[in-house]
């Protein structure tokens, strides 16, 4: 019917994988930023790693099997996780100034 041999779905799976890879890099940098600052820093690093694991678990299906339905939760939740990393990062940078 579509005659694209599932290429669009393949491209979408690969796009999810690239995004999760980028998220992993951001997690590593966040942990590196956090661990310099004592016990609170280690706690915040733990939050970053937990968020990474949760996002990965949530998006694993889309990155490996793909999905053909619209309006799915991995999309908004990954965006939310990204915004969360931005706020956590800003908090950590602010904390490092004192």
């Amino acid at each position: 019917m579509t005659g694209d041999g599932g290429l669009q779905a393949e491209r979408t799976r690969l796009a999810w994988r690239r995004t999760l890879l980028a998220l992993t890099v951001v997690t590593v940098l966040t942990v590196r930023q956090a661990v310099t600052g004592g016990p609170t820093g280690v706690l915040l690093a733990g939050v970053a790693v937990l968020g990474w694991g949760a996002t990965l678990a949530l998006c694993w299906g889309r990155a490996t099997r793909g999905a053909l339905r619209t309006g799915t939760r991995p999309v908004p939740l990954t965006a939310l996780a990204t915004a969360g990393y931005a706020l956590l990062g800003a908090l950590l940078v602010l904390r490092g100034m004192w």
Partner: peptide, 8 residues
């Protein structure tokens, strides 16, 4: 994510 990584 690239902007966030750049900031960090």
């Amino acid at each position: 994510l690239a902007l966030i990584a750049g900031g960090l």
